[in-house]
Structure formats: structure tokens, C-alpha cells
Design a protein around this nucleic acid. Structure first.
Length: 498
RNA sequence: GGUCUCGUGGCCGAGUGGCUAGGCUGAGCUCUGCAAAAGCUCCUACAGCGGUUCGAAUCCGCUCGAGACCUCCA
């Protein structure tokens, strides 16, 4: 029996608004798509929250035995900031601002995005398609939609005909929009628009002659509509219908709503069975966004240079901070909250390194139902709509048990070896593989480790000589450098690096 | 204006009809040469009002407050 059968996953489906048991179309295969970044700028912490949320979804589904194909796109084709064709193209704008080719902009920020992902331990997806690499697929999709009568061409642009679509299908189901209201509110603006109705959206857009990014199409030179790329690439790699599509809450409308309409318009079936939306990261209760100017860059965290921060925070502390809340709730970002998260993370991380060094003595004790129950709970919590907050609570329980073992309050000889192995493997797996919380510091510094060991030996000697002035000096000086020594009961000294 | 979400102890943040969330902070204790770490104990809340129920933070209604989407945004 596989883990996903033992702990069936339930997902809050944005489409129904309800928690539903997750059954993949072709178990054990799972198709997962999540909207990636538009690479015209550096990603900020709010963006990162969503990527982290779906990283955990991918990690957990994989861990419990599903074969996941995880597609996360890179939007590297520019789009006009509104569907009417006014506004600016972000990538072109950045290119002009930085005096670079659009391709250089896109390359630069794609690399930067990957670097940030690596730092935050966000795994690469199994496929990371780019919009510009799938122009052909997008043009083909536009052709299909035109052929099916759900789009019309005006002056080299192609628009999706929402009115026509609604004669046969529903539009607005995902976001709970009432189309009549939408039409009502925007009727005035329609006059000089190419669109038949305000709710129509571009699936192919003709661009002016001085626009740098452009591709030939049956309708003339232009760029694909923003919503189209996800539909085209999702279909190509995951099929006309697939299991999970995720993204930030702010993409629900119009982006995801349009995706649904396009796919139905092209293939006659609804593209996604489970829609997942992660909620916003807020600052003082307001959404973090570039346009509001309240966003934090990853770099500002590591260096502690942001005016709202009192110090620098490590990537893992930030990752822990995000996992402490459920993905569907807003999460408020503040210096205090980060400080608390840093300490909490350190506690779990310390227990992790302690546990890794522990081995069962081989003397057979008895089973411990409590420990086994904790493992079971961790799985139940994760299978319950990827509730990382509840899972972390269980890991804190476990870390207490680990510390009990370390301090001798709980003797390993009283525990049977099988239970211990299960417990150990569960804690390490949930921390590292499922939640992606790695140990920080200590490792990867062989020389430093050697040097600290030498200092520790000297301090031990000083202590046995009762030369506390010297032993305290060694400890205090190392502390000043960020190395914390801790005296164990058995006379052994361990250390952590800030 | 329309649609929707949320309001939990000093702070962050789970929970959704009866059972301890958890983390951080603060106070006390144990251990320790002193620290640190760890363990134990304490401070115990559900915006307000009304209703349903044997029983509600959890369901329903109203009031107040905050936010999101409706235009690019994860």
C-alpha cells in the first residue's frame, strides 16, 4: 500500500470552494502546473511565497509516491498591461530603462530567479517552459479557437469572444464573476476599442513597428496574449485536461478565468480538475506588490538592509516563516514575526542535527505508540490540504522527544530499534524532503570545523584545570564571532554557527 | 459600486460544533563553575450583539473593523 493510499490527499479546490479528495486522472501520475514569474524584474518575497507553496505541494505529492510532472513556466514574452492594448509592455520597458535587449533582460532575470530558488531550496520543476519557446503552439491554439468560432480578428489582433462563448459555456465560474456586472461597469470605455465587448481579451496582439519583441503569425506580426501561454504549454506537456493548476490568488481573475475559457474554446473541455490559489503576503495588512512599493527583495533580507528590518535573516528562517501559515491564508510580514520564526526554525534545525548523530544502541526496548502516532499525524496534516502549519506543530513535538533523548530523559535502550528508525527517518524526511528545511551553517566548512574542534579541546583542558577565566574567554570570543559553544552533561562540547 | 475573504491570548499563527494547536515573548524552577542549550510550570484567547443547539471560536443574522479582486502583479 502506497503512502498516498494510506493518507489520501484533500485539496481546497478554488473551483468549488470546497475541500475535495484528490484523485488524479491517471494515478500514480500527477500533472501539476503552476504559474511562474514574468522575468522583467527581480522576484520579491510575495512571489516567493507562492513558489514555496507549490514547491511543497510538489515535494509532498512526490514523497507519498505520486509520479509528478511539474510544469512551471517562465513568462519571457512581453505583454501589454491591459487587454485593450494600451499600457506598457513590462519587458520592453525594462529593456529601454536598462538599455538592454529584451532577450538580455529576460536572461538576466531568469538567472536571478533560479539563483533565488536555489537559495530558498525551491526545487526546479520537471519542465520549465518559456513563452517565447512556444510561440508556434500558441499560434496553433489561436487558430483552433478561431476555427471554433470563439474569437475574431481585428487589425491583426485576435480577441476571445466571451459573449459567444457564453452561449454554450459558463464564464466567470472560478472567480465568481457576474459578466453582466462587468459589462455594465465598463460599457463607457468601449467606444474606441477594437474589442466587441469589454470582457473580451486578446489572444494575439498586433504591435506597433517600434516594438522589439515580435513574431510573425497568420494575422501579421505581433505577440501572444498573456493568458494564452499557460494554456498552450499546460496542454502540450500535461494534456488537454490535467490534475492541478496553481498560482497566486491575484491571478484568479482574469488570468485563470481566461485560461479556462480559452482551453474550452479550443478543445471543448475544462482544462483543470483542481485549482489551487495561494494567498498574499502582506505588509502592515496590505498586499506586498511592486506597484505599491512595499515589496522586499531576497537580498534585502540576507543583508538586513531594508528599513523595516533590524537585522539580516537567513533563507531557511524565511522559508520556515512562510510554512508556519497555511498557503490559503494571508500572511503578515514583519520584523518581529521573522525574529520569532528564526528562533523556531533554529530549534527544529538543532534537533535535526542532534538526531542525525543519534544511533540506536541495538538493545531491544519496546515500541513507543506516542512516537508512531506523531509520524502518523504528520502525514495526516500534510494530506489535509498541505497544512504545513499543523505539520510544523508535530515536528516541534518530535523535536522535544529528540531533545529528551539527547539529555538522557528518554533512554534509547527503552525504545525498540525499529520504532527509532521510523521516527528518525520521518523527522529527517519531513524536514528536508517535504518541507525543504535544510540545516544551515555547520556543514560544508571542514577547515572551520577543524579549527573550532581545536578551540574546544583547549577549552576542555582549561575547564578540567578549573581555569575558568581562560575557558570563558574562549567561549566569549567565539561567541562574538558567531560560534556558540554548548557544554553537554557528559563533558562533551557542541557548537552552532550563527 | 459589484464579488469575495478575514477579524483568535503581549506578538505571529493553526483550528471549524464538545477534546492541549504550535512558535516567539515574559515570569518562576531544574540542570550547569558560570553561561548557552534543553526540560518542567505559569500567564489561556477566540471583534461586538443577537439567534440555532444539550453544547459554538467553529453554524445563522446584524453591527463594527481590516483586506483582496473587479487594470499589470505570485
Amino acid at each position: 500500500m502506497s503512502l498516498f493510499e494510506k493518507y489520501p490527499v484533500s485539496i481546497t479546490n478554488s473551483l468549488s470552494g470546497k475541500k475535495e479528495v484528490f484523485t488524479p486522472l491517471k494515478s500514480p501520475f500527477v500533472g501539476l502546473y503552476s504559474c511562474g514569474p514574468t522575468v522583467y524584474n527581480e522576484v520579491h518575497l510575495g512571489n516567493l511565497r507562492t513558489f514555496t507553496a507549490f514547491d511543497v505541494v510538489y515535494r509532498y505529492l512526490t514523497h507519498i509516491g505520486y509520479k509528478v510532472r511539474y510544469v512551471r513556466n517562465i513568462t519571457d514574452a512581453g505583454h501589454l498591461t491591459n487587454d485593450a492594448g494600451e499600457g506598457v509592455d513590462r519587458i520592453e520597458e525594462s529593456a529601454r530603462l536598462e538599455q538592454l535587449e529584451p532577450m538580455e533582460i529576460v536572461q538576466k532575470y531568469t538567472f536571478s530567479f533560479h539563483e533565488v530558488c536555489r537559495i530558498f531550496n525551491i526545487l526546479p520543476p520537471t519542465i520549465e517552459p518559456t513563452a517565447t519557446g512556444h510561440i508556434v503552439e500558441q499560434i496553433e491554439m489561436v487558430k483552433k479557437i478561431l476555427a471554433n468560432g470563439y474569437a475574431y480578428e481585428v487589425n491583426g489582433s485576435v480577441y476571445f469572444d466571451v459573449r459567444k462563448f457564453m452561449e454554450k459555456y459558463k464564464y466567470g465560474e472560478l472567480s465568481g464573476r457576474n459578466i453582466d456586472d462587468l459589462l455594465e461597469g465598463t460599457r463607457e470605455l468601449d467606444r474606441q476599442d477594437e474589442k466587441r465587448n469589454a470582457v473580451d481579451f486578446a489572444i494575439w496582439k498586433a504591435v506597433s513597428p517600434n516594438h522589439i519583441q515580435r513574431w510573425p503569425s497568420p494575422w501579421g506580426e505581433g505577440i501572444p496574449g498573456w493568458h494564452l501561454e499557460c494554456s498552450a504549454m499546460g496542454t502540450k506537456y500535461l494534456g488537454e485536461q490535467f490534475d492541478i493548476h496553481g498560482g497566486g490568488m491575484d491571478l484568479k481573475f482574469p488570468h485563470h478565468e481566461c485560461e479556462i475559457a480559452q482551453s474550452i474554446g479550443a478543445y471543448g473541455k475544462t482544462p483543470v480538475r483542481y485549482w489551487m490559489h495561494s494567498n498574499m503576503l502582506t505588509v502592515n495588512g496590505e498586499k506586498m506588490s511592486k506597484s505599491k512599493g512595499n515589496s522586499f527583495l531576497p537580498r534585502e533580507l540576507f543583508t538586513g538592509t531594508h528599513p523595516l528590518l533590524s537585522k539580516a535573516y537567513s533563507p531557511m528562517a524565511v522559508r520556515f516563516f512562510m510554512l508556519q501559515s497555511h498557503y490559503s491564508s494571508t500572511l503578515d510580514f514583519s520584523n518581529e514575526a521573522l525574529q520569532a520564526a528564526e528562533k523556531g526554525y533554529k530549534k527544529l534545525s538543532n534537533a535535526l542535527s542532534t538526531l542525525k548523530k543519534l544511533d540506536h544502541p541495538g538493545v531491544s526496548g519496546k515500541q513507543d505508540e506516542e512516537l508512531l502516532k506523531l509520524i502518523d499525524e504528520a502525514y495526516r496534516n500534510m494530506s489535509d490540504d498541505f497544512n504545513t502549519a499543523k505539520t510544523l506543530a508535530v515536528l516541534f513535538e518530535m523535536s522535544s522527544r529528540i531533545n529528551d533523548i539527547k539529555s538522557g530523559n528518554y533512554k534509547l535502550t527503552d525504545l525498540d530499534s525499529d520504532t527509532f528508525q521510523k521516527f528518525k527517518s520521518a523527522y529527517v524526511t519531513f524536514m528536508e524532503d517535504v518541507l525543504g528545511l535544510q540545516e544551515e551553517g555547520s556543514q560544508n566548512h571542514e577547515v572551520l570545523d577543524g579549527v573550532i574542534r581545536v578551540m574546544i579541546e583547549l577549552r576542555k583542558k582549561a575547564r578540567t584545570d578549573r581555569n575558568y577565566t581562560l575557558s570563558d574567554k574562549i567561549r566569549d570570543d567565539l561567541k562574538a564571532l558567531g560560534v556558540q559553544l554548548m557544554d553537554g552533561k557528559d563533558g562533551e562540547i557542541s557548537y552552532t554557527i550563527e
